[in-house]
């Protein structure tokens, strides 16, 4: 395999460049996926049937907590990739561990939030509104969950193999994915929670 040392580690082989490009296209598909969920949400959000509406169930505290956790994790993974480019494996792994822990905490709060909703009578089957709300949030949450496992696997591989073009490439792609989830969350925060609470 030809390694081009003039480029950052994650871009250094032809295969790596293809993978990063392909992943961007994949993120394009993911944008369409979430756009469809958002469009459905805006169509259904006042179709509450006999169930509660957004203002009745949304609470600002867990949502703010989730936002802070996820935004911070996006920052720490950025630091992780920076460390990787400097070739500092320990620092990179440290930042990745912090990122995953923040992601785990986010997921914990989100599960708590879902349990609260169900207790307040806003389950998946209550109304069109609660169905699309929980599906949209749940799709994001499922992406975070998958990300946690994926990130963990990459950490194990970096530990096993050190920083190679291959592990560097995987880490970088993972960081793209993680940033993307953060961007989606910002949309969820603004257009679902803030709009719903107003």
């Amino acid at each position: 395999m030809k390694i081009d040392h003039s480029l950052p580690l994650e871009y250094s082989t032809e295969e790596n460049r293809l993978k990063i490009f392909g992943f961007w296209i994949f993120l394009g598909a993911e944008i369409m996926l979430f756009a469809t969920l958002f469009a459905s949400y805006f169509t259904l959000y006042n179709r509450t049937g006999s169930g509660p509406n957004g203002a009745e169930i949304f609470h600002i505290t867990p949502v703010l907590l989730e936002t802070i956790l996820l935004l911070t994790s996006s920052f720490t993974i950025g630091l992780g990739v920076h460390a990787m480019r400097l070739g500092r494996q320990k620092a990179m792994m440290g930042f990745f561990v912090v990122t995953l822990l923040l992601g785990l905490a986010f997921l914990g709060v989100e599960i708590f939030e879902f349990v609260t909703y169900v207790h307040e009578g806003a389950g998946l089957q209550t109304s069109a509104f609660t169905s699309i709300l929980l599906t949209t949030l749940g799709t994001h949450g499922a992406h975070v969950t998958v990300g946690l496992f994926w990130g963990l696997y990459i950490l194990i591989q970096v530990k096993r193999d050190g920083l190679t073009p291959e592990t560097g490439n995987k880490s970088f792609i993972f960081s793209l994915y993680w940033h993307f989830l953060d961007v989606v969350w910002i949309f969820i925060f603004s257009f679902i929670y803030l709009k719903g609470m107003m």
Partner: peptide, 9 residues
């Protein structure tokens, strides 16, 4: 006729 919006009946 009246629940175009489909909200609370």
């Amino acid at each position: 006729e009246h629940h175009h919006e489909g909200d609370k009946y």
